[in-house]
Structure formats: C-alpha cells, structure tokens
Design a protein around this nucleic acid. Structure first.
Lengths: 208, 208
DNA sequence: TTAAAAATCCCCTAAAAAGGGGAGATCAAA
DNA sequence: TTTGATCTCCCCTTTTTAGGGGATTTTTAA
C-alpha cells in the first residue's frame, strides 16, 4: 500500500527496537521500513527507503541522535523525525527540536501515546511527551539548564575534570581572576551554592 | 506444560517489556508468567505465580531492582533473578549479585545472549553480560567506579545536592569530622583531587 | 566468637572556593 | 553608532575543602 506511513527505527538497544517494531506492526497504516542500531546504518536505510517518519534514540554510539536529526533534516527536510529518550535525556530534547525534530517520546510512553505522537508529528504539530502535560511551561526550560557562553562551558568542563581555578587559568591563558569570575557566574546561572551542586546539575542537564 | 521455564518480567519501560516478552514467547520452553512495571506488582505476581526466573530492571520507581532482588531472594531463594541494565547501571550490578541475583544483561544484548544468560543462570552459573567478555578482569571494575559503603553513598549524594560538610553532618546526625572522613575516603576511592571531579565521576558511573 | 569492615570522632595546616564588590576591553547585532 | 553581552581583570573577607595524621566504637560476615 503506497499510502501507508513508512517508518524507520533507530536505537542501539535491540529490545527497544523489538518493542517499537511490534508496536508499529500492530498499527494498520504504519509500515516498518527498517531497524537500525546506529546513525550510519540509519542514513543508508533512509536514503534508500525514503521513509515518512524516523524514530530515533538520542543516545547512539558514534554519531548521536541530535547529529543524526541534523543530517536527516538537511538531506530530507520533509522527513518527520521524532526523538525517543529516557527520562535522563530530556535535556537533549531541545537540541533535537532545534535540529528540526518534530517531537520526542520517552521510552516509558504507552503504545497509544507513541502512535498518537507519530500522527501528531505528521500533521506538522510538535509532539512532546510528558513535559507538555504541564501547561504554561515555557517549552523545555528548567531541565535543560541555563544557557552558557562558550567560555563558561569551557571552564565548566575543566572544573568537572578536576582542575583548580589556577590550573584552568594556566590552561586557557587567562588570569585566575577571570576563571574565578566565570566560576562565580556559573554558580549564579545554575542557581547553586557550590561546585558539587554545579557539577551535579551540569551532569544532569548534559552540559558535561 | 509443567516443565516449561516460567518467567516474570519487571521493567518500567513498556517497550522494553514488550521486546522481552516477545523474545520469551519465541522460545519453546519459556513461558511468560507476568509483566510488571514496579516492584510491588512484581512481588504480588511472584507470590502467586512462583516463577523460575525473574528478569528485572535495576532502575525502577519507588523500590529499585536491588531491593526487589533482596526481597525475592529472601522469600524465595530458589527463584533465579537476573538484572537487566543499561550501560550506565553497571555499578549497581555488583550490588544485585550481592543480593543474590544470578547475573545481569544489558538492554543492548542480543536475543541469543539473553536466552543464553537465562539458561546459564538456571544451571546455577553466574550469567554476566559484556563484562565477562574481558577475561581476567576482577569482575566489575573500571566503568562502574569504586565500591562505596552505604554511608559513603549517602554522603556522596548529599554532597552532589550541594550541602556542605557541616550541613550534611546536621542532616545525618553525625559530627562534621565524620562527614569530613567520608568525603576524604570518597576522594581516595574515586582517585580524584577535589569535589568537582568527584561529582563528575560519580555522575558518570551512575552513583548519583 | 572473632576478625574485618564500616562508621565514628579528633588534631593540625594549607589551599581553594565562595561571596561581595567594581571596572575596562571587545565584539556583534540592532 | 550605540547597546548589550561576553570576556577580561582586580580588590577584599570568610567559609569550605584538602591533606596529613591517628583512634575508638559498631556492624557484619565468616
């Protein structure tokens, strides 16, 4: 049937792939065009099958779901991409949307929610899972953490690597005062009181 | 058939549940006795169905896989418990084994590996996934980070929450010196020089 | 019951971070 | 061209952490 919705799955976990493909098989007008465990395979399958929808995990080996989304949307802007993530990955979701994804689902979404999200996305709507349940939220805000400048991100990562301000200063060729300032700004931006909470939050929001 | 291997699944992700149950259905001498999304349901099903094997996720809402394993093995020592984990959860695996689990699988294991692991575990062997592929390793080493005591884990999480030693001391009703000691031990165990690297490593190895 | 392991507590000093303030230089976008 | 953001740098003080010891009491597992 030419009018069926053609879907490609990308996830490095076989059981997730299995679960999703079963789900797709159970829907009349869905047809599975391919199951891939990495971005490279996915691009190959997408080029040959030209699906309507790609459901992709965010954590993938080598090339991640965000970059994959970017590549898909660059080559095939008409393909609808949906991210599939676990709770922890939510911070990456806004990145995916930026790359042109039409939404995301958490892996613990019910089959009905998943089918619904795919249909929603095909209609051009943004299909966001759990988060949209909270009305009034300014669309992915809190979970993704504050917006950092290039330098702040750099300093943050060096902090997480265990360097002291002095060491960071030497490494990036600025004075210790500067690093001090960046660090203070990081604390302020994250709304925390010390390094521990800073690094924990940074890890949680995928900044390091 | 009374001689089939009776299996109960526990995982809060429906798609994983779906994938695993399909896998089980495809094996002649396996029979699925129940699919549960949390530890409470699991205990109820286990009590009524008395399965041979329980496959459980480690991350579960409310009561986690480790505690669930403990409860199962306490009530029904003869039941074989296998952990199902993602890469990040490896650190918890040794905990599960301590509680009596017969092994673990990562969610990206192939169907064959999963079936094999179940059979292995039933024969009384320890069924460890990917890690056992590396011979000579002293069982769960690198990626999972150091083994922490209960108190250390507790202190580590409070550190990551941004509490100072003084605040932690007040919270867990010990002197600041004690918290100081725990913190120092944490640094030593993780092989790092400061809080930032500690928290970053803890996050990376799934301890927080 | 006994030996480890864990948890508790204390001393000391030095180093690093936090918290407060301010301020000039650079650069991109409006 | 001016504004706003970023990056840079400095002062100060207090708090917290790190690093080096050591020691006692509970727990826990063999």
């Amino acid at each position: 049937m030419k009018d069926k919705i053609r879907i490609v799955l990308v996830d490095d976990h076989p059981v997730v792939l299995e679960g999703l493909s079963n789900l797709i098989a159970s829907v009349d007008d869905f047809v599975l065009m391919g199951k891939c465990q990495n971005a490279m395979d996915a691009m190959a399958v997408i080029r040959s099958q030209l699906p309507d929808v790609v459901l992709t995990d965010i954590h993938l080996p080598e090339v991640n779901g965000i970059d994959l989304t970017h590549r898909i949307k660059t080559e095939f802007p008409f393909i609808v991409v949906l991210g599939v993530s676990t709770f922890q990955d939510r911070s990456y979701v806004s990145e995916m949307i930026k790359q042109g994804a039409s939404g995301y689902l958490t892996k613990n979404a019910s089959p009905e929610e998943i089918v619904l999200a795919i249909r929603k996305a095909l209609k051009g709507e943004l299909a966001i899972g759990p988060i949209s349940e909270l009305p009034g939220l300014p669309f992915i805000s809190s979970e993704s953490g504050p917006v950092l400048t290039r330098r702040e991100t750099e300093v943050l990562r060096l902090i997480a690597d265990g360097l002291t301000n002095k060491e960071i200063a030497d490494k990036i060729f600025v004075s210790q005062s500067t690093v001090d300032s960046h660090r203070k700004n990081l604390l302020t931006k994250f709304g925390v009181l010390n390094t521990a909470a800073l690094v924990a939050n940074a890890a949680k929001t995928g900044k390091i």
